[in-house]
Design a protein around this nucleic acid. Sequence first.
DNA 1: CGGGTTTGACCGGCGC
DNA 2: GCGCCGGTCAAACCCG
Length: 606
Amino acid sequence: MEVEKSFLGNSVMEDNRMKSDGDDSEGTSKEINKGGPGLWHGEEVAEGKYSLKQQPSPREKDKDLIKHKQEADDALESAKAEMGEVREENERLKVLLSRIVKDYQDLQLHFLDVIQKEETNKKSMDTSTTAEADELVSLSLGRTSSTNSTHDHQPRKDHHEIMKKNSKDEDNEVMNEAGLALELGCRSFEPAAAVDHEPMKVNSRSENNSSAGDPKEDEVSEIWPPSKMLKTRDDDVSQQQTHLKKARVSVRARCDAPTLNDGCQWRKYGQKIAKGNPCPRAYYRCTVSPSCPVRKQVQRCAEDMSILITTYEGNHNHPLPMSATAMASTTSAAASMLQSHSSTSQQGLVNSTTAPISSSTSNLQGHGLNFTSLSQNSSRLLPQSQFYFPNSSISTNNSHPTITLDLTAPSPSHFGLRFPSGLPRYSSSTCLNFSSSSSSSLDHSALLQAPNWINNHAAAGYFNYGTELSHQNRMNQVVVGSSLKIGKQPFQEPNFYQSYIQNSQNAAPAPPQNHLYTETIATATKAITSNPKFQSALAAALTSFVGTNGGTSAVVRENNHIVNGSSSTASSGLKLKWSESLTPNDSMIQSTHQPRTESGWHHQAT
DNA sequence: CGGGTTTGACCGGCGC
DNA sequence: GCGCCGGTCAAACCCG
């Protein structure tokens, strides 16, 4: 409801702004009217100079005067006519704006309606038996197809076990709803805490917030490092933090590269053979800043070696390259979701706020901070918006709350995507590029691509699929059809991110070549826009005047229990790209399960 | 030579 | 207490 209120308020604001524009134009007309005599006066002066030189006869003087009067009258008339045109234009714009606002509100209402329906469904699910609920989860989110079933050999058993386990644990309320309700409470950003450079300060920020009187603020606090967090919390929170030792965000994606290109710089510091997986697990730490606490683990999926499991932990305490904000925001949002107790029953809904990137680049903290910083500006208008966090699940292995974003699931049915036959579903040389696509040949604005949620099921080829909102969106002028773009299209936001661009340290490597399938795009666009979940996603996207939120189909994985998600929105600044580039290596295409040598997977960090 | 990777050693948590 | 395991350290090594 708060969201709706903000929308309405925003609409009113826009309306008022337009009205004031109208006043301005009227004022302008007055100025023009005043300008007439002024012009007269000026010309008289000029004429006076002229007359001093030439000293024309009085009759000639009168002639000139009459002539100039006529010219001035003409000018006045033309100015009036121009004013009339401007007024008409103004009226047209007002009508257009009101129409847009109305559509906007309709969309929002529809969005809320969908949410309510899902909530109702969820409640009805809760009354069912566990098994039934389990099945309902699968139904509501969609079972994965065979491709993913190979990733998961004990989904149901594990799911039940974990559900049992969770039922014993008081703190696992969130987990009990994992996969069904994923919510991220995103708080408005406090500039005073924006330049924190230590993880603990990140924590202290939320502590400050909590001390300010809102106990819920604790729930989104970052938990790195956990041990220190425990010292400053009361018992309940300590228990919570004990349970939520280190929030982790795991991203499953098909990727042939040793690591996901998430735009960040990583240094490998260790490698281990973990139990239960013949593939070694590589440990990386962020090297953008020496003090950055962020770690990531990269491991091949044991069941499907083509799947790369990247687990992120911690928050960046430094400004991120634009190319890294996509994954950072994603993991941030997911991690925040983990730490938020305020889960709702809305499927995959993430309370969050998208907004233009703050003009202060120092606010960009990456991950959670990056995300909160994004909320700063828009929070005035949109105190709380909701994201549809698509492919998420929560598990608590090793007392590490882990949310898994599964980008491996083919779920074309959700969008009704129909790819041209003959296109390989997964190419061998897949490369998931989370970084904002940019090219050295592009100017700065090109770095600022709108966040795009990709349809990771896109057929082979570079398939960047998401919504793209032009700067007009800040005026609430969003047209679904035209704002949708599929493919590699640099997002042009000339000034919006400029301050951040100027501080961007690294440009992402140029993305691979796109292979656009226009028919597919058209079909996808149509399917997407007709999908109610996309509408909800769009509603969330509308809350962001800068970030663009697209849809992606993927899988919600809950404790190895995979279910399909559907459309989604991303957080502001998100850009997910699924890059599956065809390679001539057909043998690889034929067998995505081809085993690799260890060195093949781990010889290179980002 | 500097920066990144490799790899065995080490440490702490946890279960038995 | 012991062993297992995940995670980290740091010296050796590699590479451009």
